[in-house]
């Protein structure tokens, strides 16, 4: 009986994980930039939601839009002014740049917001849904639903819009896209902005689930990394499959081997995936 609950836990957690990873995956897959800033962007989204709720009474589900928009602007600016200068350099160079920017932004947040853990306490929480022996925390379920909806919208954007096709084209072959008249550096900036937007939206949704502190950025980044490798880079379905897989594996791993081994199990699995399916569970084909 306990397994139904564990499966439910894993699915809900996995949905949140997918939402953490999708923007990171997009930027890595399209730009070949490992964006170390991603975790800090998520935390910034959480702070936007926290302050919007505490000062203006705006529900975090609404802040998803403003946090996403704000982070899009920040992401776009960071790419077009800084990262674009080294975009053609080896991956280590862009990694170092985003790492440095992350130190800067994260420490600015430490100064501005302090390291204290805060929590967005909803006045009217959604409560729990009991289905027989299974408890579903509705705020997590709603956050997961919205996260999946946003992810789906991103997927449609990539598939159906002109800009989306251009992003996909750049991902597949940068030179060829450039020869076809795609403004590659603009597409880079839009893609980086979209990645940051997804991080901001995720942060806003996660604000009702996790305590908020600049110190959490490393944890979010670590999860995003694992999910991308699990699911495959640069693909929206890959992020969803990777997120759900990680959530379910961690949940069952914790039950069978004890919670102290949950992380060990997910990394052991990561190594196996890298050996046997280096392109991830879905692989590169997932998103065209």
């Amino acid at each position: 009986m306990i397994y139904f609950q564990v499966l439910a836990n894993g699915l809900v957690l996995g949905g949140l994980y997918a939402c953490i990873a999708v923007g990171f995956s997009l930027v890595w897959g399209v730009l070949n930039v490992i964006n170390i800033l991603h975790g800090t962007f998520i935390v910034l989204g959480s702070y936007i939601a926290l302050f919007s709720y505490n000062l203006l009474g705006i529900h975090p589900f609404v802040s998803v839009v403003t946090a996403g928009a704000a982070l899009y602007l920040i992401g776009h600016a960071v790419q077009s002014t800084l990262v674009n200068r080294v975009i053609a350099a080896p991956v280590l160079m862009t990694l170092t740049l985003t790492f440095g920017l992350d130190l800067l932004l994260n420490n600015l947040m430490l100064v501005a917001f302090k390291a204290d853990y805060r929590k967005l306490v909803l006045e009217n929480p959604l409560g729990q849904l009991e289905i027989g022996p299974v408890f579903m925390p509705l705020d997590r379920v709603a956050a997961m639903g919205l996260a999946l909806l946003l992810t789906f919208l991103l997927y449609r954007l990539l598939r159906d819009s002109r800009i989306g096709r251009a992003i996909v084209a750049v991902r597949m072959d940068r030179e060829a896209a450039s020869l076809m008249g795609v403004d590659v550096s603009r597409i880079n900036a839009v893609t980086f902005g979209l990645g940051a937007m997804m991080a901001g939206a995720a942060g806003s949704l996660l604000s009702i689930v996790y305590p908020i502190s600049p110190l959490n950025s490393g944890m979010f980044l670590g999860k995003a990394f694992v999910i991308c490798v699990l699911g495959g880079l640069g693909s929206v379905p890959g992020a969803i499959v990777g997120g759900l897989a990680l959530g379910i594996i961690e949940s069952f791993g914790a039950i069978w081997f004890g919670p102290e081994h949950a992380v060990t199990i997910s990394f052991a699995l990561l190594i196996l995936i890298l050996i046997f399916r280096p392109a991830g569970l879905i692989g590169k084909r997932g998103f065209e």
Partner: peptide, 20 residues
């Protein structure tokens, strides 16, 4: 008596076990 790792972001499994 369960232990959880430093940096754990989800305690649902341990708490499910606890409920049982």
């Amino acid at each position: 008596f369960e232990k959880y790792a430093i940096g754990t972001m989800d305690h649902a499994s341990a708490i499910t076990q606890m409920r049982a």
